[in-house]
C-alpha cells in the first residue's frame, strides 16, 4: 500500500466514488419508478404475468457489457457517455424489480383485499395503504439484490472507459500498481455494504410488523 498515493489522489478518488454512486444508484431509483406501475399492471392482470416473467428473464440475461455498448447505437449517444451505463443498469434494475413488485402484490391474499374493501377502503387507497405495504418485503428483497449487483457491475464499465471505481482497477493494472486496485475494491465493497445497510434500515422502519413474533 502506498499511502502517499492515497493522500495525493484524494480528489480523484472522491470523484470516482461519486461517479460510482451516481452510476449505480440512479438506475435503481429509475428502475423502481418503472417497475412500480408495470409490476402493478402485471399483478392486476394475470394474463400479463407470464410474458412479463419471460421478458424480465431475457432482459436480465443480456450481459451488462453488451448493453453498455449497444445503447450508443440505439440512443445516438457517444460510447463514452455515462448515460449509456445509466440506461443499461436501469433496464436491469427495472427488469428485476418488476418481478419483485408483481410477486409482492400477488402475495396479498384475497381475504385481505376483501376485508379492506369491506371496511371501506376504495380501490386506490387500498392499493397504497394495504397492498403495497404487504408487498414491501418482496420489493425490498429485490432492491437489495439489484443495488449490490449494480454497484459491482458499474466497475465493468471501466473496460469501455466509464466505470467509477472500476477505473482504479484499469489504472492500477496498466501501471502494475496495487494501491489503486485495493482502494477501489475496498471502497466498492464498503459502498455495497453501506447501501445494503441503508436499505435494510429503511425496510425495518417501513415494515415494523414483520418483526413481530419472529426471531430472524
Amino acid at each position: 500500500m502506498d499511502w502517499d498515493w492515497l493522500t495525493s489522489n484524494r480528489a480523484l478518488i472522491t470523484d470516482l466514488l461519486t461517479q460510482h454512486v451516481y452510476l449505480a444508484l440512479v438506475p435503481v431509483a429509475l428502475g423502481l419508478a418503472l417497475a412500480l406501475p408495470i409490476g402493478f399492471l402485471t399483478a392486476r392482470f394475470a394474463r400479463l404475468y407470464p410474458p412479463m416473467l419471460a421478458a424480465s428473464a431475457v432482459l436480465y440475461s443480456i450481459p451488462s457489457i453488451a448493453l453498455f455498448i449497444v445503447f450508443p447505437g440505439i440512443l445516438g449517444t457517444q460510447i463514452l457517455d455515462p448515460i449509456n451505463i445509466v440506461v443499461a443498469l436501469t433496464i436491469y434494475a427495472g427488469a428485476l424489480l418488476v418481478r419483485s413488485v408483481a410477486d409482492g402484490l400477488r402475495s396479498v391474499s384475497d381475504q385481505v383485499r376483501q376485508s379492506a374493501t369491506a371496511v371501506g377502503y376504495e380501490r386506490w387507497r387500498r392499493v397504497l395503504k394495504i397492498e403495497l405495504p404487504i408487498a414491501l418485503p418482496f420489493i425490498f428483497a429485490g432492491l437489495r439484490f439489484v443495488t449490490v449487483a449494480n454497484i459491482s457491475m458499474v466497475s465493468v464499465g471501466a473496460l469501455i472507459g466509464i466505470g467509477g471505481l472500476g477505473q482504479l482497477f484499469t489504472d492500477g493494472f496498466q501501471r502494475s500498481f496495487f494501491t489503486p486496485i485495493i482502494v477501489g475494491m475496498v471502497l466498492s465493497v464498503l459502498l455495497a455494504l453501506c447501501a445494503d445497510i441503508a436499505i435494510v434500515t429503511t425496510q425495518r422502519f417501513l415494515t415494523p410488523w414483520t418483526r413481530a413474533g419472529r426471531t430472524t
Binding site: 449490490v148 454497484i151 459491482s152 466497475s155 465493468v156 471501466a158 473496460l159 466505470g163 471505481l165 472500476g166 482504479l168 482497477f169 484499469t170 492500477g172 493494472f173 502494475s176 496495487f178 486496485i181 485495493i182 477501489g184 475494491m185 466498492s188 465493497v189 455495497a192 455494504l193 445494503d196
Partner: peptide, 13 residues
C-alpha cells in the same frame, strides 16, 4: 459485492 474486474486485475498482478 466484490467487483470481478478488481479481483481479476489484483490476481493477475
Amino acid at each position: 459485492s466484490f467487483p470481478s474486474l478488481g479481483v481479476l486485475v489484483l490476481l493477475v498482478l
